[in-house]
């Protein structure tokens, strides 16, 4: 069996990205859609760190991954606030049933 290389990490992140896409496309609950987005961002982060390690670019990739984590935190806070507001207005958070911005 060959040694672990860059491609092993890229394949893991591809599978994680596809799982995230699947969650965003199929799940009804808005919070599960958010979990899918977190999976996608994590997959992108694995790519950044793997290229930073194997591409010999210094630490630029890790800095970018750090920025992605910060953006993910801000995104989760805002999205949860919006989801709570939707729940207050419509009493559910199923993204396939909500098609109005206000009641």
């Amino acid at each position: 069996m060959e040694h672990i290389s860059l491609q092993h990490f890229l394949v893991v992140s591809s599978i994680l990205f596809s799982l995230g896409i699947y969650a965003v496309v199929t799940r009804k609950n808005a919070i599960l859609v958010l979990m899918g987005i977190e999976l996608i961002l994590n997959a992108a982060n694995i790519n950044f760190v793997a290229f930073s390690r194997y591409g010999n670019f210094g630490l630029s990739g890790e800095i970018t991954a750090l920025f992605v984590i910060i953006l993910a935190a801000a995104e989760a806070a805002i999205a949860l606030a919006i989801v709570l507001n939707i729940y207050k207005t419509f009493s559910n958070v199923n993204v396939d049933e909500i098609n109005k911005l206000k009641e």
Partner: peptide
């Protein structure tokens, strides 16, 4: 991959922050 600081940040922000928020 040798990213020690990023691993700590991942645990603190994702598991300690975002997951609790979710």
């Amino acid at each position: 991959l040798g990213a020690d600081f990023l691993a700590i940040v991942q645990i603190m922000v994702y598991i300690g922050g975002i997951l609790v928020l979710l």
